[in-house]
Simulated scan of single mutants.
Amino acid sequence: MGGPTQPVDEHICTTCTQDSVDYFNAGLYCSEALLKAFDQHYDLGLTPEFRKIATSFGAGIGAAQCCCGCLTGGVMVISLIAGRSTPEQSETPAFEAAAALHTAFKKEYRSACCRVLTKDLEWGSPEHYAQCQRFVGGMASMVQTILREQLGVEPTHVCAE
């Protein structure tokens, strides 16, 4: 149930995408892996302590298998870049980018719910883990596309191809 593969976009930082997957493979939850990789490639300015905010979104919000941690991690990245600091600022850029990310994820994988995305897999099995790896890589590409196309934001580090 991996869904179709995202077409390769020549503007995607493959290093950021690979780092997201590598951090997941190293034991971070999907939400943590995405936040750490984007922090490094987009200079989000997060300390390791602050990156802990992503932990509870893993495994579908506290292991409840609800909203996919990849999606919540991606939304955190968008919010850090386009979110507002005061009530007077517009939430529109962040809301529109997050909605576009949600729509892209559901279009690609047919659901945003962790439980639905992994329903045919034994939780914690190698197949489940491989499925989540695909989601992490796909989400990293989706976030980068939305950052570039909607928000005009590129990685701050040169990305290897």
Rank of each mutant, 00 (worst) to 15 (best):
A64H: 12
A64Y: 09
Q65H: 14
Q65T: 03
Q65V: 02
C66P: 01
C66E: 09
C67K: 05
C68R: 11
C70F: 12
L71T: 15
T72Q: 07
T72E: 02
T72H: 13
G73I: 07
G73W: 12
G74H: 14
G74M: 11
G74D: 07
G74I: 04
V75Q: 10
V75P: 03
V77L: 02
V77T: 03
V77R: 02
I78C: 11
I78T: 10
S79C: 01
L80W: 00
L80N: 00
I81C: 04
I81Y: 08
I81A: 00
I81T: 04
G83L: 03
G83P: 05
G83C: 11
R84T: 02
R84D: 01
S85E: 00
S85W: 06
T86D: 03
T86H: 06
P87Y: 09
P87G: 12
P87E: 05
S90L: 06
S90T: 14
S90F: 03
S90I: 07
S90C: 05
E91D: 10
E91W: 10
E91A: 15
E91L: 13
T92Y: 08
A94Y: 11
A94M: 04
A94V: 03
F95P: 04
F95K: 13
F95N: 10
A97Q: 01
A97H: 07
A97S: 08
A99N: 09
A99H: 09
A100R: 00
L101D: 06
L101T: 08
H102W: 14
H102P: 09
H102T: 15
T103N: 08
T103P: 01
T103I: 08
A104M: 10
A104Q: 10
F105V: 07
F105G: 05
F105E: 05
F105S: 05
K106Q: 11
K106N: 10
E108W: 15
E108C: 13
Y109L: 11
R110T: 12
R110N: 10
S111H: 15
C113I: 12
C114N: 13
C114T: 06
C114M: 08
R115V: 11
R115P: 01
R115F: 05
V116K: 05
L117N: 11
L117I: 04
T118Q: 12
T118V: 12
K119C: 12
K119Q: 13
K119R: 14
D120H: 15
L121E: 02
L121I: 02
E122R: 00
E122D: 04
W123P: 02
W123C: 03
W123M: 10
W123N: 09
G124L: 07
G124N: 07
G124K: 12
S125T: 04
S125K: 01
S125H: 05
S125A: 01
S125Y: 03
E127N: 00
E127G: 00
E127T: 00
E127A: 01
H128N: 01
H128S: 05
H128C: 07
H128P: 00
Y129D: 07
A130N: 14
A130P: 02
A130S: 14
Q131P: 02
Q131K: 09
C132S: 00
C132K: 13
Q133K: 15
Q133I: 04
F135L: 14
V136D: 07
V136T: 10
V136R: 11
V136Y: 14
G137K: 12
G137S: 09
G137R: 09
G137N: 09
